[in-house]
Design a binder for these strands. Structure first.
Lengths: 188, 188
DNA sequence: GGATTTGCCTAATACTATTAGGCAGTCGCA
DNA sequence: TGCGACTGCCTAATAGTATTAGGCAAATCC
């Protein structure tokens, strides 16, 4: 009986495992156990533990980009801003391990070929609803990236657990503030 | 010859090691090598690898809080905002391993007794220069945390490496934007 | 159906984490 | 100054993970 291993299937199972036990607990051994094969068998399909993690990261980036593309279709302005922001937040909540994986630092060449570039493009697309030209557009892209990633990772890490008001409320106020900032972007 | 190990010294050396090779490469073994003692010897001083990492995290949080307190002394308004923001950014650049350590998720009890609460208090103190009342103040605290952490971690992770304008410029524009947002915080 | 490919296995090595128990250097005290 | 107690670092053992080399059998291709 052969188990039918594949780099694809390993990455997919690794992503599930990451959501269950955390991305840094994803291990070649744990994955082998999950497929009920010996550890060494995985090495015909992935080069190393790092290679495996990279594949999981790429998978997560793709999924996230697909969701983002869906969410952005037909929207503009604040509507688009909110939609994209919620994609990140919801994905991180549904798939914390995958979200952590998407944060993995990739080799420059790998990153350039990844769905990361789609993310950058989509964030930029949102700014079409606002009146920004270079270099302000790039500043704004970075601002959005910072707020989305920063908020989501703090909320996920429990950073907001022990203070009072609802996080949903905060999230909405932050998106309001971002929208206002983009509308009244200070002239250079 | 005794090496003179101490939980304190181990945490301090662990922090240096983290800055050199990355926080997740900090290992009981590597630390033992650094002190030229056997691995088991460390276990008289720290309970486990996790305990060691927690101590490094607490150390980093303290250092960071001390720097922040220094930077905030005698400042208010945007001046204070910029000062605090720069403390985080500069610390992350000088001590990437420690900064990563400070991100470690702590047990609730440990977190409550850590310098984390000073950080929260100082962020709140900055808002005294702006006219916010609860619950907007809490929303604003969370916004600042998100932007600071998000920007710093993206910049550190190389997320801005392959786009054009200077990151310093972006950083200043983001702080301008934050200041404007806090001054014109939308009414509830 | 026989040859070839290839997928998974066994075996071996190395590194990390952790625990148990031993010996000797160090310190308190007479 | 010497004795005893303590405690700091050691040896030894176990277990989990990563990785490589080489083997055997199942699947595949004429």
């Amino acid at each position: 009986m052969r188990a039918g291993l594949t780099a694809e299937r390993l990455a997919r199972a690794g992503a599930e495992l990451a959501d269950e036990v955390g991305f840094d607990q994803v291990t070649v051994s744990a994955l082998a156990r999950r497929f009920d094969v010996k550890v060494a068998s995985l090495y015909s399909h992935v080069k190393s533990s790092h290679d495996l993690k990279t594949r999981i990261a790429l998978l997560a980036l793709e999924e996230l980009a697909d969701r983002a593309a869906d969410a952005l279709a037909g929207r503009a302005g604040k509507d688009a801003l909110t939609a994209l922001a919620n994609v990140y937040r919801d994905y991180a909540r549904e798939h914390p391990g995958r979200y952590a994986a998407a944060q993995l630092r990739l080799e420059p060449a790998t990153a350039a070929a990844s769905a990361g570039v789609r993310h950058a493009r989509m964030t930029r697309a949102i700014l079409r609803g606002y009146d920004l030209t270079e270099p302000d557009q790039t500043h704004a892209v970075r601002l959005l990236g910072s707020v989305f990633h920063g908020y989501v990772s703090l909320e996920l890490g429990g950073g907001f657990d022990h203070s009072a008001p609802d996080t949903q409320e905060t999230w909405e106020r932050i998106l309001d503030a971002l929208d206002a900032t983009l509308r009244n972007w200070p002239a250079t």
